[in-house]
Computed example of a mutant assay.
Amino acid sequence: MEHGGPSRTALVTAWARAVHQVADQPRILTDPLVARLVGSEAGAPGIDRPRRLFFAARARFAEDRVAHAVADGVRQAVFLGAGLDTFGCRNPYPDLRVFEVDHPATQEWKRERLALAGIDCPATATFVPLDFETGTLAAALAAAGFQRSEPAVFVWLGVVFYLTPAAARATLDYIAGQARPAEVVFDYLQPADNDEERAHLRQRADRLAAEGEPLRSFFAPDEIAAQLRALGFAEIDDYPAADLVAGYLDGQPGFEDEPSRALRASRVLRARR
C-alpha cells in the first residue's frame, strides 16, 4: 500500500461493492454507505460481474457469521485489514464493539472520506491504527480496549495472500488464543493444479507485484485445515468462490456462463473454536 492512502486493491474492492448496489440483481450485499465513501470514483474501473459478485458474497458471508456470533452472545468483532469496509458504520447491533485494524494511512484517508460524505459511525466503532513494521496486533488491540478474555469474531478479507505463510500463521495463532468461542472468516488462494491455471496465476501475481502488492502465499485446502485443527479450531467450513456466490443467488443465474478464471483459486473459510 502507499503511505498516502489506501491500497489499489482496497479501492477496487470498494468500487466493486458500490457498483454491485446498482448493477447486479439479485443483490447479495446491501451496503448503502460504500458509494458515498468512495464518492465520484465509484465507477472508475471496469470491474467484471464475477468479481463484483465474489466481493459481495465474501462480505455478506462474513457479516452473516458476525450475526450468528452476536446471537450466541459474542460482543466483539475485529476486522483485520478493514480497508474501506463500512460494517463498523452500519453495525446494527448496539452491544457489539467493532474494532477496525488497518494501516494508519489507510485509516486517516478513510476517516477523512467519511467526514466529507457526512457518514457518522456509531460509538461502537473503534479504529485501531497498526503499522506492522513498528507495532503488533496484540498491543494495538489491547490499547484500543479489546478484551482477550471475552469471545470474539474476526473478519480477515482480502489480506492473507499478501502475507507470508509465517505472518498468516502468526495471526491465526493470535486468534486461537482468544477466549472461546472464537471464530475467524478469511479468504485465501489455493495453488493452481494445471499449466493453464499456473500461467494465469503468474500473470495475476506479476500484475499485482507491479502495483506494489505481491502475492506471497497460497494454501491447499487440506493444508490450511490441518493448520487450523492444530490450533484447536474444530469447526471448519471452506467454500470455493463460485459455490459461495451460488449459495446467495438462490438458484438464479450467477456467472456460470461468464469467464470466472480469475476466481478459480479463491476460497472463503470460516473456522470456530
Rank of each mutant, 00 (worst) to 15 (best):
L163N: 02
E133V: 12
L208W: 07
V128R: 10
A205Q: 07
E112S: 11
R113N: 08
R97D: 10
Q190A: 15
Q147G: 12
E223C: 02
P191K: 02
Y93A: 09
A115E: 13
N91L: 04
A210S: 11
S260E: 12
A57Y: 00
D131A: 07
I47Y: 04
R202V: 13
E256K: 02
R113C: 09
F127T: 13
F127M: 14
F55L: 14
A140I: 06
T164A: 12
R270F: 00
Y248H: 00
A23L: 14
I28T: 05
A199V: 08
A230E: 13
A10P: 04
Q190G: 13
G158Y: 08
Y162E: 04
R8D: 14
A166I: 15
T124F: 09
A271T: 01
E197Q: 12
D120L: 14
A242R: 06
W15R: 14
A168F: 08
F146E: 10
A138E: 15
D24V: 14
F186M: 03
M1D: 13
P129H: 07
A144G: 03
D48S: 12
A62F: 02
P259H: 12
A77Q: 08
R60C: 03
G83E: 07
Q21G: 11
P122F: 00
P104M: 06
R52E: 02
A168S: 11
Q252Y: 09
V12E: 10
V70G: 03
A167E: 12
G158S: 02
N194S: 10
D131N: 11
F54E: 00
D120R: 13
P94Q: 05
L84F: 10
G88P: 02
R97M: 12
L244V: 00
H20D: 07
R204E: 14
L249I: 00
L37V: 11
D222C: 04
